[in-house]
Amino acid sequence: MNARVRMLHAVLRERGQDLYARALLLTGDDAATTSLVERALADGLGRGHRPETAEDAEGAVWDALHRAFRRDKGDEPALAARATAMDEPDIREALRLLPRRERVAVVLRFADGLAATAIARTLDAPLKAVRADLASGARTLADERPDLRIDVEDAVEGGVEEAFSMTLDGGR
């Protein structure tokens, strides 16, 4: 097994759950999730110089996943059956109201707590565009789900520069 494949195994072992979780949150579809994760692995580990450390590899794949989703165009598959408790509206339905680029910005902002500048670095996107995406996405979500009490200004201006750690329960 060469170094690149060892890295692939290591990333999946350490971050497989996070990657699938994030991809499903973004796409809402099992098949699209699998495809997105595979693309992220290929983009993150298959191109350019091999990351030097496992941490670099995990970061490269994580960024690649969000960038690949943002680049996607075309129709999206229907949402898979809801998996959350029946007494709570499915957040994915609200996220589906957002174009992909707004959705990925909003998820990075609220699931990871990142600031717009950090999101722009993650997505390799212009800061101005990210701020516009956050504002528009947050506004749409706020209108659709007032119960979430989303502050549009906070969405654009708040957040931290670095994600400290990623866990399934969103803690850091």
Partner: peptide
């Protein structure tokens, strides 16, 4: 979002 993420895991 965190609750939804569990299903992806």
């Amino acid at each position: 979002l965190a609750r939804q993420a569990e299903t992806g895991g």
